[in-house]
């Protein structure tokens, strides 16, 4: 402002330009311009919720009873996505670690994306809208697709892997990979990823070392109780039992941790890589735009699936078939 006043006053050669507006002229008074909007918004919401509360009652079921379990029993909607994840992977990943990772990711966004570009306007970068839409659609399709794949007996995705032969129950070692069928007359493909540890069997020739006595390393039989080195050393720190009698169940680690998590990681990297190769991802902001959108969209999708598509015993069924057994 003061700088402007010091400019040479006369420059007659230039045609008349509209004087750039000063900061103060672009400003409006909070009272009444903003306070009025806030007031109207508050009144509208008060009326809306008053009416909503007059016409729709909050649920109150029977008295709590530890002996009667409703089927299905569900968490509140904003945690239903975690409940949904519990069906597909190790519970500590689904319930605690992944949400923690997601929240930590949210928190560090501004420390990793430090550029000041694209702030203060909606979708400030060149391809922002396009990236947001693609990431949202991709996340919805992928998370719904994975849920559908993991309920293979109902959605018939197991037929895709039915070519894997049924296991020979008489053989001592299975050799090439096969699926063990509970009902020998009915062969099924991979119903869910958990089948990798529950039903998949194979063996490879192996020398008689490390606890192998029959020249064959069997999946899962030989790998589900691997002692961790030094697990005979037992110590307590406070009430935490560390490293005592710890065994690894490799097939379960594979089916409940490695496969689900690496699938998520792979699909996330894939979309970012593809959009990068297309030339639409140009800045770090764009990468975070994709990731944030994808996390939000899959959060919502999994909540929806948990709310509307999970029936008794958490089976995947259409909304109109859901019947709640109050117990």
């Amino acid at each position: 402002m003061a700088v402007e006043a010091q400019r040479p006053a006369a420059r007659p050669a230039e045609p008349a330009r509209p004087r750039p507006k000063r900061e103060r002229e672009e400003e409006v008074l909070v009272w009444p311009d903003l306070v009025f909007i806030e007031f109207v918004a508050a009144v509208l919401f008060t009326i809306t919720f008053l009416l909503l509360s007059v016409f729709i009652n909050a649920p109150l079921l029977n008295h709590a009873n530890q002996d009667v379990t409703p089927n299905p029993s569900k968490a509140p909607w904003y945690f239903l996505n975690l409940q949904e994840l519990l069906l597909h992977m190790d519970k500590s990943w689904a319930g605690v670690l992944l949400p923690t990772v997601a929240l930590a990711f949210f928190a560090v966004i501004p420390y990793l994306d430090r550029s000041r570009q694209a702030q203060g306007v909606w979708f400030g970068t060149k391809y922002a809208v396009r990236l947001t839409v693609i990431a949202a659609v991709y996340a919805v399709v992928v998370s719904a697709g994975l849920v559908i794949f993991d309920a293979g007996d109902r959605t018939h995705t197991e037929s895709l892997t039915r070519w894997i032969p049924s296991c020979d129950t008489q053989a001592a070692h299975q050799g090439s990979p096969c699926l063990r069928d509970a009902d020998p007359t009915k062969h099924e493909g991979i119903i869910s990823v958990k089948d990798v540890s529950k039903r998949l069997q194979f063996s490879v020739p192996f020398p008689n070392i490390w606890g192998i006595h029959d020249k064959n390393l069997d999946w899962p039989g030989d790998l589900d109780h691997i002692p961790v080195p030094l697990n005979n050393v037992c110590g307590n720190i406070g009430s935490f039992h560390l490293w005592c009698d710890m065994h690894l169940n490799i097939p379960v680690i594979m089916s409940d941790q490695v496969i689900p998590l690496s699938t998520i990681a792979f699909l996330a990297v894939l979309i970012i890589y593809v959009l990068f190769r297309l030339g639409w991802v140009r800045t770090r902001r764009d990468v975070f735009l994709i990731m944030f959108t994808a996390v939000m969209a899959s959060y919502l999708t999994l909540s929806m699936i948990g709310s509307f598509f999970r029936g008794q015993a958490q089976a995947l069924i259409p909304p109109w078939d859901i019947k709640v057994d109050e117990g």
Binding site: P59, L60, L61, N62, H63, A64, N65, Q66, V68, T69, P70, S73, K74, A75, P76, F79, L82, Q83, L86, K91, S92, A94, G95, V96, L97, F240, E326, G327
Partner: peptide, 24 residues
């Protein structure tokens, strides 16, 4: 409200909290 909805939603939360590694 201590009804069935409340109890079993909290039970699911309890299960999730218990699945925290080491600190469950």
């Amino acid at each position: 409200p201590w009804d069935q909805l409340a109890l079993w939603a909290a039970t699911i939360g309890l299960g999730i909290a218990g699945s925290a590694p080491y600190f469950g």
